[in-house]
Amino acid sequence: MTGATAAADAAFIRCTRLTKVFRRGDTEIVPLRDLDLEIPRGAFVSLMGPSGSGKTTLLNLLAGLDGATRGELWIDGQELSRLSRDQLARWRAKSVGIIFQSYNLVPVLTAYENVELPLLLHDLSRRERHERTMAALETVSLVDRASHFPRQLSGGQEQRVAIARAIVADPPLLLADEPTGDLDRVSADLVLDLLGRLHRERGRTIVMVTHDPLAAARAPLKLHLDKGALESTRVDSVSMEGARTAAGEVAP
């Protein structure tokens, strides 16, 4: 193992001078500038900041949906910039579950079929896929809605289906982009409870972008981004200890 790899393994997520630059005509936009960040395995992190601060850009880089312009991004010992497009796709299928603000369910597929999607990429039999899909739906308490299409579900139910889809392949990392942004308070609390449970009981590492202070309050580790740089870090030590304990007890 190289020194860099060993360093990267010390943290589950490690960003070193991570920079993303977009060009719009002659204008250069830098949503992330030389970001250094370490997130331990099993942490539940909220990522806050004003619009345009680089939160979603960082989340996209963490998800392997976009590539950094400069710098290094290590996740679970893997440097993402070294992966090809196809390797990144395989990595996403195995390592990350993404929850979007607008749910992003496939409208012509049922809740069951939406949740099953990531499992189609794994070498599992139909029966194994069924068992795992039903277990994921059970986790989000939507077994009775398995045959419903997204248009037949409420916003909160759609987001829970999206969470089931994110966790069904058992990835160690969950990324949530404003998961409660389109939900009423009751539904938002349900979703946040669910994320909290996944963190506490299953030791998932969760990074959640949010504008909602109540949602951010659920996360033990709070990061604040502004103008592409980390402005502040606040750790709820009790909760973080709980997170580390959970991470230690439950295999990722």
Binding site: A63, L65, R85, D86, A89, R90, W91, R92, A93, K94, I98, F100, N104, L105, V106, L117, P118, L120, L121, R165, A169
Partner: peptide
Amino acid sequence: AVLQSVGFPGK
């Protein structure tokens, strides 16, 4: 894009 984000390869 969602299918790709889930891990479906472009090919």
